[in-house]
Nucleic acid binder design. Structure first.
Lengths: 143, 143
DNA sequence: GTTGAGATTTAGAATTATTCTAAGTATTGA
DNA sequence: TCAATACTTAGAATAATTCTAAATCTCAAC
């Protein structure tokens, strides 16, 4: 069993349980997401995906990302005005957006779950916390 | 002094301190925002603004909203994939997004400020919490 | 009050991000 | 094997926002 096959059952089954097929394109797009965890846009995923699969199309990248999000293997992240970004980290975490370089970083939420009392009648299903500021690199330069 | 003039010093000075001029269009767009606090998109603001100022253009609405955001009189809110929304509530609060009707509601953050320890080197300047789920109206219907 | 510099408004063009469409291809189950 | 359906592809269409250039306005200096 190769290293690729070892992790495949996860994506394979995940897709199947949401009614999606497991295709080479979806596998490839997922690997691209896992490969560089910098919260790329669909455009960036497309450019990276073309390296290993030159004939893949933009429409397919959107389709694959959509399938990955719907079956719980990736999250959509939108922090700035620009394009949607994608994140394969499904652990509980929040995002740090650097206002200087535009970079997005995962911040672990080990304990601190934001506890906000909801007004009467609201049924909250999930929370999303984002933090803005300067990343270590940019904070250093500003000093 | 009319009721309009009474609140004007605020927007007037706010614009000025950020280097913007106080114009009839900016005043009008601000009043549109204050008039219906449902987090409208630029498009919706445009449609509402045209009622009292038929010749205002979309470009001006974008310009006004941008000025209001930059001088601290409004916030940009982006929760769904669609267009940016605008919010004139500058008190500390978070947003509730109803996944059924798409409505956005302000939720007061009286005490609960999300406390998240930042990793070494990150300089956080501000936080943004959003909650998703069902608003009272939609939760009722689902029962 | 003129005048000139710079800000603002306007309509429309351009750009960007995303979704849709239609045709071809692949996969699945009967 | 065959039909139904899912998937991929290129390109068109749409939606949201930004840009451009010309006209207008405002302010301050003269």
């Amino acid at each position: 069993m190769t290293s690729v096959e070892k992790k495949m059952p996860r994506i394979n089954e995940r897709l199947a349980t949401s009614g999606f097929r497991f295709t080479p394109q979806r596998e490839h797009v997922y690997n691209v997401l896992l490969g560089e965890r910098d919260h790329p846009t669909a455009e960036q995923v497309f450019l990276r995906a073309k390296k290993g699969m030159p004939d893949i199309s933009m429409a397919t990248v959107y389709n694959c990302l959509d399938a990955l999000v719907k079956c719980g293997l990736a999250k959509q992240v939108n922090l700035d005005r620009g394009a949607m970004r994608f994140c394969p980290n499904m652990h509980e975490h929040c995002h740090f957006y650097c206002e200087s370089c535009g970079g997005v970083y995962d911040i672990d939420l080990t304990r601190a779950r934001p506890e906000v009392p909801m007004p009467r009648g609201f049924k909250a299903t999930h929370w999303e916390l984002s933090v803005r500021g300067l990343c270590p690199g940019c904070a250093m330069k500003r000093k």
